[in-house]
Design a protein around this nucleic acid. Structure first.
Lengths: 226, 226
DNA sequence: TCTAAACGGAGCGAATCGCTCCGTTTAAGA
DNA sequence: TCTTAAACGGAGCGATTCGCTCCGTTTAGA
């Protein structure tokens, strides 16, 4: 079909550039956090700033797209976990996969962008899957019964960010960055072990409420310091 | 003695301001990370910028002082742990106390300042104490034997930073910040539970090496991107 | 050879940085 | 009461960095 030929070289380059941009943005955001600059994202993708702004009219638009992709990844990881026959193994798959995403593009920019409809929808899908995953693991007795789905979500967020890895990446020390990554895998294994039933002693305080998630995305553009 | 009178109001205010500066710097650094500004530190302390620079000739000098204090806190927490009769309880005391320090003033500025002699000394003292703590806990069989002292130090660093807490603090939402803190306490409890022997399965990969700590403080002022 | 789509990046105004410099306040001594 | 010097707060300097625009160049296809 002619379409394939029309989509050839030049348009194909545009497509490749878009993928490179999204991948680079994800990486840079994970390392530099909220202070990542558009210039550094374009540079990391090997693309001019102009090309970036031809695809996304603004920085926020790019960030929104990144969030949608990240939320989709989380939802998929949770659904893969549900596909596992063993409830515990399924939960472990979700946790390790989600952690391996790194801080993704979510936490660093929470509250700085407007939530799109697509983001809200993917988020609900993800929440539902995680809730089912945790419920299953509770019922089969593998997961300690005082750990809630929100506890696990917060645990994932806590483990996802690796300051050590980021630091060595920023300094271009690849070997040490790799070592930092395997060190974190050990820590994740420790945390997962801590989720197994039975627990030696109950978790302190009340279980976390959902406001911890929802309130943080209520984007308030008013700066705290006038 | 006349000294007390000479040290009265005006010099006393200077002393109070110094304490306020250190406390505020610690707080601001924990929230804003490496991008904290001198102006915001002075403002948080309720002090003029001029007063800050009368005490510390440069931003780096202030940061070095903060690091020395933080390292001292860690060392003290570890030594308190050693004072406990029960090895496991002593280790738990160290971990929870160290985590409660937050990211302190260490991780955010690692590699950005020169190490003073005092910093190196306090660091060694802290390391020795932690090594003994972990050795004791291993010998009495409470701590899983494939978890090393470095694993525990990295675990502490991983848990110390609370993005959620920081976010709500930045947005001046005190109630949610408090909720975020108790949520993190639950996560710390989970992780500690994961350190208990016996483990269901061994930790993956090789134990982390000490370069992960030492290399990161080798301050390289050359920017990676020329 | 010509055209139009995709490209890269210099550079704009605004914001922010670390830090200096100076006019003001205040407690102690004459 | 007046003088003095130590401690104060903060406006503002030059440098840097930001998001974004604008324009000259490259290149695939007719």
């Amino acid at each position: 079909m002619g379409t394939d030929k029309r989509r050839a070289s030049r348009q194909a380059e545009a497509e490749r550039n878009d993928q490179a941009l999204l991948a680079a943005a994800r990486e840079v955001l994970a390392i530099d956090g909220a202070h990542a600059s558009v210039a550094s994202i374009a540079a990391a993708a090997g693309v001019g700033i102009g090309s970036l702004y031809r695809r996304y009219r603004t920085k926020e638009e790019l960030y929104q797209r990144l969030c949608e992709i990240a939320l989709d990844d989380y939802a998929r990881a949770a659904e893969e976990g549900l596909a596992h026959g063993d409830p515990w193994e399924g939960l472990v798959h979700y946790i390790t996969t989600a952690v391996s995403f790194g801080p993704g593009s979510l936490a660093p920019i929470a509250g700085t962008i407007e939530i799109t409809a697509e983001m809200a929808e993917k988020n609900e899908r993800s929440d539902r899957a995680v809730e089912m995953l945790v419920g299953r693991a509770h019922r089969c007795g593998a997961l300690r019964n005082d750990a809630t789905a929100l506890d696990i979500s917060l645990l994932i967020e806590q483990l996802a960010k690796s300051p050590l890895d980021d630091h060595f990446k920023r300094q271009q020390m690849a070997a040490l960055a790799q070592a930092a990554r395997t060190a974190r895998e050990r820590i994740v294994a420790i945390a997962i072990q801590g989720l197994r039933a039975p627990a030696h002693q109950p978790l302190p305080g009340d279980p976390p409420g959902y406001e911890l998630f929802s309130e943080r995305w209520a984007s308030r553009h008013d700066n705290p310091s006038p």
